[in-house]
Amino acid sequence: MSTAVVADALTKTYGSRRGSLGRPAVDNVSFAVEEGETFGIVGESGSGKTTVSRMLLGLVAPTSGRAVVGGVDVWGGSREDRRRLPQAIQVVFQDPYSSMNPRMRIGKIIAEGLRGPGGKAARSGELGRLLQLVGLPERYAELFPHQLSGGQRQRVAIARALAMNPAVLVADEPVSSLDVSMRGQILNLLASLRETYGLTCVLISHDLGVVRQFCERVIVMSAGQIVEQGDPDEIFQAPRHDYTKALVASIPHLPGQA
């Protein structure tokens, strides 16, 4: 089993060369994700978890450190290498409203990353397959985002990501903006797609309960640093770091729940 994602001493400090804005947003974060593994990054706002994901995706350049995804050195590699990045890693964002261009039709949105040979027929066949994969009827390709519900939009976002056939899928708070009764639909969809395609999943969330059910390994971040890592169940039942202890203790419980 090879390593799908390697984060090596990633650091991000915002601010100009003359002075920085206080502490680094991401401070010396290192971790590795095996192929096919489901990995979780847990943290609250300001913990740096989103910045870490953006460094892996090639959106935000680290101040120092390396990120290697699917064999591609995201920031140090050659141009040809970096062109392979979209096939290596894709993302599903949190907000199903702002993650799609409101003026584009669903079909165009999903197929946006697709290029290359095949022509229109092949592409529309592919589009149909993708829509079916995420449980949406084919006629939805003609609709606009505002005509869909939040959950349906997240399905579109998943289809868009899968269109690139990536090895790694990053899901950044994929259900936090959805109604509670809908979250399970999307999470189950991600779980089944993970099975079918052998995807390496990186789930970013503030919800330790979701991460516990979905991920095999997790890191807990606070103030830009990794404070704890390991098996989600162990961390939940026996947290070692003070921050994790406070986090676990604050989780509200339904009556009669552990």
């Binding site: 090639g58 959106l59 894709q90 964002f93 702002s98 261009n101 976002a157």
Partner: peptide, 23 residues
Amino acid sequence: EFIAAAQVLGVPKVVISFRHLLP
């Protein structure tokens, strides 16, 4: 986020400018 999504999809910046920014 849809701009970020397009970048992650590998759409070149010039195309993003025409397709997403301009409208």
